[in-house]
Write a protein that binds this DNA or RNA. Structure first.
Ligand code: FES
Ligand code: FES
Lengths: 145, 145
DNA sequence: CTAAACTGATACTATATTAGTATCAATTAA
DNA sequence: TTAATTGATACTAATATAGTATCAGTTTAG
């Protein structure tokens, strides 16, 4: 069972790259080569993130993409929703044959509770947080050299 | 993003049916028709659960399947692992290009933490628990009629 | 003792999702 | 004016999910 697919994975990494160079434009090409993401694939993901107002773009030479939204406001949950659809445990696991009453279905409630937990855990993880963690890790690595 | 696929879903329902009739054999056919599960699909799931010692079978007329393991010992996590593979957030989301040091990678730790939370939440849900919830719900429904 | 009701095993098809590639038009800065 | 870039979109490939079909072997009821 895979929780993050490639597109979400790549999107997170692209956002981290853009957040690290906040205020300036980065081309899709540079992000792709630096972070080992398939170029055309990445471009589609970037387009999608523009549509969701996470980033902006500039066309032409010296163009590229730039952060628009505050990295601390972008959660992994949002990215999962964009690239993998809303988290849903099961469409309707226990059908009429078993419980009859959807509104009062205890099993369904159990499942939905977990759904909530999963979502809220991913909401705690923002691009901003990941970026800071990443910088800390890099500093540690630097010192050791 | 789908957390439970059909096979896990069906497997859970089949186990609930078998748990409800603990001690006697239920045929694949009867489970399939009663719970609206594709017959041949269900049979494969049952075979898989035999291999994992959750249930046992008896061949021939009056044969069928019966619970082997205690329903309280069967968690949804186990079923997900059997039918959808072990829960993994991402194979290796942040590669050498970003963090270099896998062992000390903060981002990876963040992701693995969530992985644990998700797993432990699903571990709280056993077939036994679901069965009791289901019975309680049915009683409520009965009273209202 | 045999036919019908079963499981065991396995191969097959169909559909959906995920992953990745290719192409061409439009824009812009040097 | 041309090379570097994004915008838009169509396409292919690989994998996962969902479902079907078939046939051999076992058991028990009649
Ligand atoms: S039947 Fe769909 S939720 Fe209980
Ligand atoms: S690189 Fe794979 S975990 Fe940091």
């Amino acid at each position: 069972m895979k929780v993050l697919t490639k597109n979400t994975d790549y999107a997170i990494r692209a956002l981290l790259a853009l957040s690290a160079k906040k205020g300036s434009y980065l081309s899709a090409k540079s992000i792709a080569t630096e972070h080992d993401i398939p170029y055309q694939f990445l471009r589609r993901l970037l387009q999608e993130m523009i549509r969701h107002d996470l980033i902006v773009s500039k066309e032409g030479v010296q163009g590229g993409f730039m952060m628009e939204k505050d990295p601390d406001e972008i959660t992994v949950t949002q990215l999962i929703e964009i690239f993998q659809g809303k988290v849903q445990v099961s469409e309707c696991m226990f059908r009429k044959q078993i419980c009859g009453n959807r509104a009062r279905c205890v099993l369904r409630h159990e499942i939905m509770r977990i759904e909530q937990v999963v979502q809220s855990e991913f909401e705690k993880v923002t691009i901003g947080k990941l970026l800071r963690d990443l910088e800390t890790a890099n500093q540690v690595n630097q010192k050791e050299k």
